[in-house]
Amino acid sequence: MKNILVPTDFTGTSDLALAWAKYITKNYLNDGLEATIVLTHVTQPYIPDTTLPTGEVGAGIMAAQEMEDVGELNLRELAEQLEREGFRTRIETRFGSIDSEIVEVADELQPDLIVMGRSHIDSFFDWLAGSSAADVAMTAHCPVLVVPTLEEGKHHPVRLETIAYATQLEFDENHILRPVVDLARRFQSNLRLVKIKALNQPNVYDDRQFLDQIEAEFGRNRFAEDTVDADNVAEGLTKYIHRHQVDLLVMATRERDFLSKLLNPSLTKRMVLSSDVPVLVYHAKENY
């Protein structure tokens, strides 16, 4: 992991994401590896108010241009601060829709990881609207780490003592587990494989089949295995995170067709929007 993309809007939420990016990057730098933090800021386009006189539209466009200039200036200042701290940086400014522009930057630069902050969601309408972080996590073609901002300005400590990997044990996950195991090894973290047994979750294959597959490649002592009974997976994972003081939840999302998404909204996205701890999202290659 040598290039980390960090979108920022210069708020406390972005500051938390940057703290995690610095924490991860510093580990690579300490090992003598080169690593770059790519800072990006997206200015949203001006949407004219049709109730205003026509002459006001030009003023709105000028204001949007000023916001773009201010954003670039702030981005440069942030990059200079990081370089004084010993980090290598690059900046990218964009104009447009936040989530789509971030994904476009990621497609262009091919970072190893995107780290984004997620604002506190405290109402049904916030949940319904979702967040740019969740949208990026579900559509980007690289791993995405979403760092939540909790109520009253609280936040989870920046550490990786315990990593929980949510598994169904219903398909081959070794290709996703490889970078997770590497992450746990690099930070000397405790890695726990967690399966939530819920009525709405399929249980087609024998768990032992896939556990044997995992143990054959990574070794039995690399992780702990936990099975939790719960009414639903999201509830089970949330309780498990609190009970075991998990620092990072890792989840895999798989591409699904439109009807599947409509009938069964992504569990991964629900956890990205609700988790009190950072969620690292990987994308499985298989479709279903």
Rank of each mutant, 00 (worst) to 15 (best):
N190F: 04
R178Y: 10
N174R: 15
I196A: 10
V180N: 10
E170T: 00
I196H: 11
L193D: 03
L169Q: 07
R178T: 14
Y165K: 05
R186V: 06
H175P: 00
Q188P: 00
E173Y: 06
R178H: 12
L191V: 01
A166Y: 05
T162R: 14
N174I: 11
R185N: 13
R178Q: 12
R192C: 09
D182R: 12
F187G: 07
E161G: 15
D172H: 13
E170R: 08
R192W: 03
N174T: 15
R178W: 07
R185A: 14
N190R: 15
A184Y: 02
V194Q: 08
H175S: 15
N190A: 12
N190P: 01
Y165T: 00
Q168E: 15
L169A: 07
E170F: 10
L191P: 03
R185F: 07
H175F: 07
V194F: 06
D182M: 07
E173R: 05
S189L: 11
N190V: 07
L183F: 08
Y165H: 08
V181A: 10
I163Y: 01
Y165D: 03
A184K: 02
I196L: 08
I196R: 05
R186G: 03
L160Y: 00
V194A: 02
E161I: 02
L183G: 03
D172S: 06
F171Y: 14
V181L: 09
R159C: 03
S189E: 08
L160W: 05
Y165P: 05
E170I: 00
E161T: 11
Q188W: 03
E161M: 09
N174S: 14
F171M: 04
R192H: 11
E173G: 00
Q168V: 02
L183N: 01
A164P: 09
Q168K: 14
V180S: 08
L191Y: 00
K195I: 04
L169C: 02
E161W: 03
N174K: 13
Y165F: 15
V180Q: 02
D182P: 02
A166E: 09
L191C: 11
V194T: 02
R185M: 04
R178N: 10
V181W: 09
P179Q: 06
N190Q: 13
S189K: 11
I176A: 14
F171P: 00
T162Y: 02
T167K: 03
L193K: 12
V194S: 10
V181R: 09
F187P: 08
L193V: 03
N174Y: 07
D172G: 09
N190E: 13
L191Q: 03
T167C: 07
R178A: 13
A166I: 00
L193I: 12
A164F: 01
R185W: 10
Q188E: 13
D172C: 02
E161Y: 02
F171W: 14
L191M: 11
V181G: 04
